[in-house]
Nucleic acid binder design. Sequence first.
DNA 1: ACCATGATGTGATAAATATCACATGATTTA
DNA 2: TAAATCATGTGATATTTATCACATCATGGT
Lengths: 214, 214
Amino acid sequence: MLSGRTLSAYFMPQYFYICGMYQPILDHIAGYVSLSPQEQELCCSLFTQRKFKKYQFLLQEGNICQYDYFVITGCLRQYEVNDDGREYVVQFAFENWWIADWQSMLHNKPSIFNIDALESSEVLMIEKNDLDRLFREIPAMDTYFRKMMTSAFLSLQRRLLFQQKTAEERYADFFNTYGHFEQRISQQHIASYLGITRETLSRIKSQHVRQLKP
Amino acid sequence: MLSGRTLSAYFMPQYFYICGMYQPILDHIAGYVSLSPQEQELCCSLFTQRKFKKYQFLLQEGNICQYDYFVITGCLRQYEVNDDGREYVVQFAFENWWIADWQSMLHNKPSIFNIDALESSEVLMIEKNDLDRLFREIPAMDTYFRKMMTSAFLSLQRRLLFQQKTAEERYADFFNTYGHFEQRISQQHIASYLGITRETLSRIKSQHVRQLKP
DNA sequence: ACCATGATGTGATAAATATCACATGATTTA
DNA sequence: TAAATCATGTGATATTTATCACATCATGGT
């Protein structure tokens, strides 16, 4: 193992990873744990960057989810299509959010979800094997993902609680989670996240406007 | 650090931890990661065992959740009481399940949940500080909890999807999660887990019976 | 064993939301 | 720029589930 940052940078060209495209994810990780330059290097080297056009699929129902995605720019959505053809959005992912079907990835089973881009998006993606390698070689990544998973768990729990409330309260809750992103998502997608029809959402919104006008 | 199991057992009385009460949790951990005897020792030493009588609270709304609980025997339930006084069960916990309000524990905020015993129960409990110590001193515990959290996340995700379906479908799903535990939970608690009233659950069940009779 | 209390069953009615149908408005594309 | 396509608004009605009211059944405590 090389010890100094400067020395290794000289001998190891992959140190160039620590720049540009990879900065957002390093920053995000740094918010939870600290990685040595060597660890940052290894980490970045295992990610691939890729662009997706609007409406392009990152994962389609029936396929096995191969990657965990980290959004650099743009907006993704993970959703299920039920037997009647109705869509239910499980999660939106904006800048600095992770998205994947863990059920599928973990157990190598066909996914029941679709993941697609609502805007043209840039992502960093890491294969399951490489993620496992990260966990093996960098203990701090275990910690990082433990914390990520905990916070993902807590958002889901919060959402489950709100799912018990009326459509109007759920709409209000949407702002707490996705707040200023609202402009970037169409109403039908918001409705499909809230678990109501677009008609009901439309009516809720018009009632709100009426309440504001005295 | 002492190297051999027998030698340490001789000199370190706390090796007695590895027996009886602590076996279930060591077995559970061993299902995910492997700990050295010394690590098992440290781990057990940080847990307290305690019994709770039926209907006794482990956590009450407004208090800060201090412990993560691991159920040895019995059955616990975590639930929210909404503004109308209606209860919503977030999770049941039977043998070998973890339960806690992570939101409260992580951020040291008053809990919105109650946790109580539906049967008289024996649990192992660990304080937040001690859990943090485990993470610091035993890297494998980071891995273990990452995996626990991932599976907790996936159950919640599954539940969120089912919450979109009809009451009848949700009732069917209940069996997939809590299957043979059904006999141990009263209908009103099942209803409160499904997010429906006990009347609706009663009607669903009687319709099922009617369908079976030709 | 009896009584009190809690759990469950069932009818009548109310409330929330979905469905269907169609109008209007906005955006993309040829 | 016109046409086509997609997104949103709104009315009438249907469906699901909640609410309230009360009956019946089960169970634990004295």
